[in-house]
Nucleic acid binder design. Structure first.
Lengths: 295, 295
DNA sequence: CTTTGCTGTTTATGCCGTAAACAAGGTATT
DNA sequence: AATACCTTGTTTACGGCATAAACAGCAAAG
């Protein structure tokens, strides 16, 4: 069934989105394969993931896997979707973090993504631009986009911010994962390895800025690169949000606000005929809570 | 000479830093190998780079390369350093961009890095945390760090900003490179490929934020992700710079400024005995030009 | 009872990096 | 001049990888 379909993306969609497994029978199954592959990748990284090893771990031959998965790439897509389910499983009901400012909510999803990649470092190593999202991936993306609901950002900006943040988290996680793996493989810590490169340091005297930063202790206590980067990014987004808020405020008094300032939904006329400000009681209360929190 | 040294980083240092080749003799040479490898990787990506193909391109056997390069990884290090030389070759003398504000200089090095990765997309694909820098890599790093000279940032922050920016450029370039490659490999544009995933879109109705953003045209004209991200990042850095400037200004009036506000150099007493403000005429003029430009 | 389809296995192909032994030529030493 | 050595390139071989293709066992459906 799965065989010979490695080049068919739509089959990949079916695989990712089809209903939960029927009754668990003995023998192989998609879910078992995916789970085994995740364990393997958690331990050895994405590059250490091979069809052979997954099959061995399950006690089957390599080719047996191809009865359930079209190929390695699709297996990775399935693994990705599986672990993305972990974030939502631990999240509260009412959207992303419910309370708090957009900034707090955004910082929270970044932290969640960071922690997920701490548990599954291979997630950041997944390459390629055509990975099909499964139900969990889409739900997670929707959840992240939801953090910016109610800001004055334009739709395309909401998307750009979330994508940017996602790439940032991935890049930082990738760096950490690679460092960790090389440390484990070689048995030498990153510090020790670089510290032993005397033949390199001998040659760095001629570089002025490098030398000055070295002498003023720039490398003595380095910044935490995830925390530092996240702060800069959030600050940068905040500048944009404020800009859009100012634009909104300038036009507010003349043209009546025709969309909910909290979630952006278009406002239909209230039954009473009185002009609405919020689209629902939930939004009105959320705005109230935020106003109180800001003060 | 190169053989059997694949695990010796110090030999890698020697290779990267040793003087320019002697007279070009017929047959193989390190430089020729590196050049051929760069051409290959430019065309086929880092994953398409193999010792076999490099050797074929030069008309030698695979193993002949190992007389000059310890292994594939070290070859990549050499390629990296070679192309990093391109940036500095086109740069003016007096440090990074010489004129302009720190923000303009920082934006400029980001743009240069972006363009370099446009010419050599594989550069962003290089993985691993223990890549030895050669002379060009160090000079380029020094050059980038130099853009923030004269700001109120602390040394560790200067480094963190430059590293963050570097990872950002790399991440964006990687995304683009992967997209391009898949487009070339499959012959289908990214838009067309995703547009044909009807079996996926059928299932996206249940996701509220996604749906709302779709309906309000969020994906109609997406932001340019490099330009957008760079703006956010620079804005974020600017927030930090201003914060540090305020801190400096608060202590300015009581304790005399003992370092040049333009480049950070410690000020020695002027021969006249009159308290100096800038360390040199160059810095005084630069500050003047900037003040005029801001107004 | 036979046909069909699902599941797992066997076998084989063609990539990859590189270790090890070897061959040939130039250079230095005796 | 004869010898040893060093540098360069080749041959051969190994173990790893993904996966195509043919095949074998079994169960349910006709």
């Amino acid at each position: 069934m799965a065989q010979g379909r490695a080049g068919d993306p739509d089959h990949g969609v079916e695989l990712l989105w089809r209903e939960a497994e029927r009754e668990p029978r003995p023998g192989l199954s998609l879910r078992r394969i995916v789970r085994a592959a995740i364990e393997l990748a958690d331990a050895e990284g994405l590059e250490g993931l091979s069809m052979r090893k997954v099959a061995d771990r399950l006690g089957f031959t390599t080719m047996s896997l191809y009865r359930h998965v079209p190929g390695r790439d699709q297996l990775v897509d399935l693994m990705r979707d599986e672990v993305l389910g972990e974030v939502l499983a631990g999240a509260p009901e009412e959207g992303p973090g419910a309370g708090g400012s957009w900034r707090e909510r955004l910082a929270e999803v970044a932290r969640q993504g960071w922690e997920l990649r701490g548990r599954h470092p291979w997630l950041a190593e997944v390459r390629g631009s055509r990975h099909l999202p499964g139900p969990n991936a889409v739900a997670h993306y929707d959840y992240m986009l939801g953090t910016l609901t109610g800001t004055a950002l334009r739709p395309s900006e909401v998307i750009a911010v979330i994508d940017l943040l996602g790439r940032f988290v991935d890049a930082e996680a990738l760096l950490l994962a690679e460092t960790r793996r090389e440390e484990r493989r070689s048995g030498v810590s990153e510090q020790d390895w670089w510290g032993a490169r005397d033949s390199l340091y001998e040659r760095l005297g001629r570089y002025p800025t490098l030398t000055r930063l070295w002498e003023t202790g720039g490398w003595d206590r380095p910044e935490d690169s995830f925390a530092f980067g996240l702060r800069r990014l959030l600050d940068g987004v905040e500048v944009l949000v404020r800009e859009r808020e100012n634009e909104r405020d300038e036009t507010r008094d003349e043209t009546r606000p025709e969309s909910c300032p909290e979630c952006g939904t278009l406002l239909d006329a209230a039954p009473s005929g009185r002009p609405r400000v919020y689209c629902s009681r939930a939004c009105r209360q959320r705005a109230y809570r935020r106003r109180r929190a800001d003060a």
